[in-house]
Amino acid sequence: MSPNHVTELVELLQLERLEDNLFRGQSRDIGTRFVFGGQVLGQALAAAQQTVDPMREAHSLHAYFLRAGDIEAPIVYSVERTRDGGSFSSRRVVAIQHGQPILNGSISFQEPEQGVEHQTTMPEVPLPEDLEPMRHLPPEELARLPVKLQRWLGIDGPFEFRQVWPRDDMHPVKRPPIQHIWFRLTAPIDDAAILHRALLAYASDFHLIGTATLPHGISYMTRNVQMASLDHALWFHRPFRVDEWLLYSFDSPTAQGGRGLARGQIFSRDGRLVASTAQEGLIRVRNG
């Protein structure tokens, strides 16, 4: 795996400042039809962070995906400095393409402080070294897919994933809506906590809403299935590094009305709960 993918992703999160509260980010074609939602989340967080006292750390992000992003066009991020209080700062971010908002987000920052502490226990799962890396499709199967999908499934990205319970998205079978996946960047990066949070925001969009499809024997590759993320929530709890193994534990408590809800907990290798996520997504199964 080449560190070039990691360098490209880190550069993607280095936004150009156009004005005090206006930033521009580029888009990266990773083989998806539209801009990957995690890219917009990571860039929105990076934009908001540039308007906040660097001593204040992001602790929560809530965003709505409004339109599909155009891979061929840059994205402009407009940041509203909603409030700077004694301990917390709030920012509203709008991501804009072609004059239209594609994402609305709210992000809260806090100065570090001590307080009561507890957490849930990390699931007992095999260590990443005891699991096989996710494998590419055989060339003959890959060749039968659309070109865009071939690129998505046929290249190594900046993150490595190892599934506790591997799943074949080409031939999905029904199973409970729970999964555990280890992940990390494929190359080391510097220590800046701001960068690690932006990269976790990017990675937090992988595999999340797909958890809601598990009981139904479908996936994003099923021909008559339409899927799209509708919103995304992310809470940062404790320090972490994305270039070290993290366990992403997912569950989906419900699906109804053409929508599915998925939740995630992200643990460090030593069992610390470092972040939590939630996402609702569109899941439509069309007849015929």
Score class of each variant (00 low, 15 high):
P101E: 04
Y202I: 05
A192V: 10
S89M: 05
L13Q: 05
P123R: 07
S252N: 04
G85E: 10
Q39P: 03
Q43K: 10
D270A: 12
E11W: 00
M1V: 10
S90Y: 07
P54K: 04
H180A: 14
V6G: 09
H171N: 15
D243H: 09
E160H: 02
L185G: 11
G105H: 00
T213N: 08
H180M: 01
E19S: 13
A187T: 04
Q14E: 15
H59S: 06
T7V: 14
E57A: 12
Q49N: 06
A46T: 09
F161K: 00
A212Q: 00
A228W: 11
R151P: 01
F183W: 00
D53P: 05
I155S: 13
D169K: 06
H237N: 10
N21T: 14
Q97H: 05
R223H: 13
R238L: 04
R33G: 11
D231V: 03
R263C: 13
R269D: 01
R81A: 13
V285W: 01
D251H: 13
S2T: 15
F23H: 11
T7E: 15
N4S: 14
L13G: 08
W182E: 07
P74Y: 05
Q114E: 15
I218T: 12
G69R: 09
R241T: 04
L103M: 15
D243L: 09
D53L: 06
M227C: 11
A275V: 02
N104W: 09
S229Q: 06
R28W: 14
P112H: 07
L13S: 05
G257D: 09
L145T: 09
A44K: 01
E72P: 00
T213F: 07
I155F: 11
F250S: 07
S276A: 13
A212F: 02
V79L: 10
Y202E: 07
Q100M: 11
G99Y: 08
M134Y: 05
A143R: 14
R56G: 03
F23T: 10
F34W: 10
R17D: 03
L137Y: 13
D270E: 15
D53F: 03
S106K: 00
A228H: 02
Y248I: 06
V93D: 11
H136T: 04
P74H: 07
L137R: 01
T51R: 07
E280G: 09
D231I: 03
D251I: 01
S219M: 08
V274F: 01
P176Q: 08
I107S: 05
E244G: 01
G38H: 02
F23W: 09
G31D: 05
V35H: 03
G25I: 04
G271Q: 01
G85L: 07
V147E: 15
I75F: 01
T82C: 03
V116Q: 11
D168L: 05
K148Q: 14
G42W: 03
P54T: 12
H180K: 02
E141K: 14
V6S: 06
